[in-house]
Write a protein that binds this DNA or RNA. Structure first.
Lengths: 207, 207
DNA sequence: TACCGGATAGAGCGTTCGCTCTAGTTGTGC
DNA sequence: GCACAACTAGAGCGAACGCTCTATCCGGTA
C-alpha cells in the first residue's frame, strides 16, 4: 500500500514542489516548519492547515489525536531533517574533529540563510512542553538520542573508546543546541563557529 | 468583596516572603517563572495576574505596553536570577575550570529539585519570539551577553588572555544553555555534569 | 448502476486570548 | 476636610483557539 496520495487534487498535476506530495506529508512538513519557528503554543492548527494548503477536516482526518499527535509527527520529521544535515556534515571529513566543525558550518549557513529563524527543529517545542506533554517530550528525547548516536559512531570510527565517544557525543549535541540557540538570539554565526572550534579542540585531546 | 488585598505598599516591605513585596514585583516574578516554564505564547496574562495575586487592572497599570513590555521586564528579572547563580558558582573555586564545574552542579541541583521544569529563564521565550518580537529578543541577547561577561571575567582572573577568555566564555554559556535544555528533555542531570567535565578539560588546555 | 469508505470541506461550538474601559478604593499633600 | 493621583477591581470586546460535526466528493468494487 502506497503512502497516502492526493485523491482529488484540484491543483494542476504539472506543478512541482509540494503539489506532488500527499496531503498528510504536506501537513507534517508545514507543522514541522512552524513548530521550529514559533513553538508549540505559538502555532495554531488552522495556520498549519493554511500553510499546508489543506483543510481542517484533513488535519483531523490524518491526526485524530489532535494537535499533540500532529506535533509528535512533526518532531519526528524534524528529527530526520536534522539527522540528514548531521550525517552530511559528519561525512565531510574523516577526522571527527574536522567533521564536527563541518557540522557547525552547515548549521551556521542554514541559520543565516533563513535570517536566523530556522534553528533546531525541536528545541522550541521541547522547552515549552517539558513536563506538560509527555508524548511530545518523549519524541524530543528520542530525537536527541538519535543525533547523539550519529556523533558517537563517528567518534568511534575515529578511534575513540566507546565510553568516551558516547559521553563526548552527548556533550557535542548539547553544545550544538546551545550554540544554535545563542546564534539565533544574537543574530550571529559566531557562537556556532566558536562552538565548532572548541569542540574540535576538545575532541583532539582524546585522540 | 475580597478579603485579603495587597494595599498600597509599593516599595515598603523589609519582611521576607511575597506578601511584603509590592504588586509590581509580584507580577514580574510570576511572569518570569511562567515564561521560564511555559514560554511566551503558552503563558496568558490572566494566569500571570492570578499567580501574582494581582488583578488584570494592576498588570496593565504597571505595564501599559501589554504582554511584550511585561515579558521584557520578566526576562530582565530572570537574567538577574541566573546571574546570581552564575556568580555563586564561579566564586566557589579560584580555578576557573573548577568554578565552571561548580556552576553545572548548581544548575543540575536546581533543575532536579524543580522536577526538570525550571531551566534557563530566557531560553523558551527567546526561541519562540526570535525574529518576531524585537524588544524581547534584545532583552534576551543582553542577558546572554551579561552572563558571558561574568564567565569571561573569571577566566581572565584565572590568567587567560582577554581574547581567549571572551571566546571561551561565549562557548561556555552556549554549552550551559544546551546542556540545560538536554537535561530537561531527557530528565537527567547527566548532560549538565558531562558539560561541566568537558568544559573544565577544555579550559585547562588554555592554562 | 449502486454503493462504500477514504478524503475533503468548512460552519460552528465553547473557551480563552490580549486588551480596553469604567468604577471603586486608598494614602498623601494642601 | 478635601482634591488628587495612584492603585485595585473586574465586566466585557472582538478575535483566535482546539476541536466536533455534518455534508460532500471521488475512485474502486460489486
Amino acid at each position: 500500500m502506497h503512502t497516502t496520495k492526493p485523491r482529488h487534487d484540484t491543483t494542476e498535476g504539472t506543478e512541482g514542489g509540494d503539489a506532488a506530495v500527499g496531503t498528510r506529508d504536506r501537513i507534517v512538513r508545514a507543522a514541522a516548519r512552524l513548530l521550529q519557528r514559533q513553538g508549540y503554543e505559538g502555532t495554531g492548527i488552522k495556520q498549519i492547515a493554511r500553510d499546508a494548503e489543506a483543510t481542517l477536516g484533513s488535519v483531523y482526518h490524518f491526526f485524530p489525536g489532535g494537535k499533540q499527535e500532529l506535533a509528535v509527527a512533526a518532531i519526528r520529521h524534524g528529527e530526520q531533517e536534522f539527522a540528514d544535515m548531521l550525517r552530511a556534515g559528519l561525512a565531510a571529513d574523516d577526522d571527527p574533529a574536522q567533521a564536527v566543525v563541518a557540522c557547525t558550518l552547515l548549521l551556521a549557513t542554514t541559520l543565516r540563510e533563513s535570517d536566523w529563524t530556522d534553528g533546531c527543529p525541536v528545541a522550541a517545542t521541547a522547552l515549552e512542553t517539558v513536563g506538560r506533554a509527555p508524548d511530545i517530550q518523549r519524541a524530543c528525547a528520542e530525537a536527541i538520542g538519535h543525533w547523539t548516536d550519529l556523533v558517537s559512531d563517528k567518534l568511534c570510527d575515529g578511534g575513540l573508546a566507546e565510553d568516551t565517544a558516547k559521553e563526548l557525543a552527548g556533550a557535542t549535541i548539547s553544545t550544538l543546541e546551545g550554540a544554535e540557540l545563542t546564534a539565533q538570539v544574537l543574530r550571529s554565526e559566531e557562537p556556532l563557529l566558536a562552538a565548532g572550534r572548541h569542540l574540535a579542540r576538545l575532541i583532539r585531546t582524546y585522540q
